[in-house]
């Protein structure tokens, strides 16, 4: 699904990440951890081709991101659900319309998916907030809305960047449960988080590999987690 082959990324001549080798197999669940500024977000952005590797190669759905056109990247993104760190909503659209955005931009009839949208809003517990605007939502509600938007297209892969960064423990567990449920439905999941408590709590729900970024390198985390 995604394969990183000795990939690396430099910014302004300074190498941030190097020697990245990783394969995300279908149906797998990975945590990516490391201290703030270690490069977790950068690695995720490399995975959905928001950044291109400066060395090595990243293959996305069988195609090298270096040779993908903008439209190829857009097509690949329709198969990837991204839960961005700051959620990235369109503030002039309601929660429902924001969740339906991937349907709209891919040319699908949003009205034909109204029932799905209602079910999805109920699943993430946002039924009563369907018509609210994003600025009116709490941090946890925004994260759940972002997760709903990430899964509306029934993607093969879900990339989540600090999905519990702005929420309390109870909400973190709720989001983790939703992600575990998606994984049981066959979705491949990669979650970047610095919250080791979340990773430990996840062990009871999913079988996940834990990767750590340190010194710009990707390592398999030890049993101490």
């Amino acid at each position: 699904m995604i394969e990183l082959r000795e990939a690396g990324y430099s910014f302004g001549g300074e190498p941030l990440l190097g020697g990245l080798a990783l394969t995300l197999a279908p149906g797998s669940f990975h945590f990516l951890t490391g201290p703030s500024g270690a490069g977790k977000t950068t690695l995720l952005r490399l995975c959905y081709a928001d950044l291109l590797p400066t060395v090595g190669e990243i293959e996305l759905f069988g195609q090298s991101t270096a040779t993908m056109s903008r439209d190829d990247i857009s097509g690949a993104r329709q198969r990837i659900g991204v839960v961005h760190q700051d959620c990235q909503f369109l503030d002039h659209l309601s929660v429902t319309d924001n969740i339906a955005l991937p349907l709209a931009v891919s040319g699908r009839d949003v009205d034909a998916h109204r029932e799905n949208l209602r079910e999805l809003l109920a699943w993430v517990g946002l039924g009563p907030r369907a018509d609210a605007l994003p600025p009116e939502l709490s941090g946890g509600e925004r994260q759940r809305a972002a997760l709903a938007r990430a899964v509306i297209m029934d993607p093969d892969l879900i990339l989540a960047d600090e999905p519990t960064g702005n929420v309390d423990w109870e909400m973190s567990m709720r989001l983790l449960t939703l992600l575990a449920e998606l994984n049981r439905m066959g979705k491949t999941i990669l979650v970047a988080t610095h919250d080791l408590g979340l990773i430990r709590a996840a062990k009871a729900q999913v079988s996940a590999r834990v990767l750590r970024i340190a010194g710009g390198q990707l390592q398999l985390a030890g049993a101490d987690l």
Partner: peptide, 16 residues
């Protein structure tokens, strides 16, 4: 620009 980034994030093609 931020709207465009969000649209691209969810898979919008530049033509759209």
């Amino acid at each position: 620009e931020q709207v465009i980034r969000t649209l691209r994030l969810v898979g919008a093609k530049d033509g759209y």
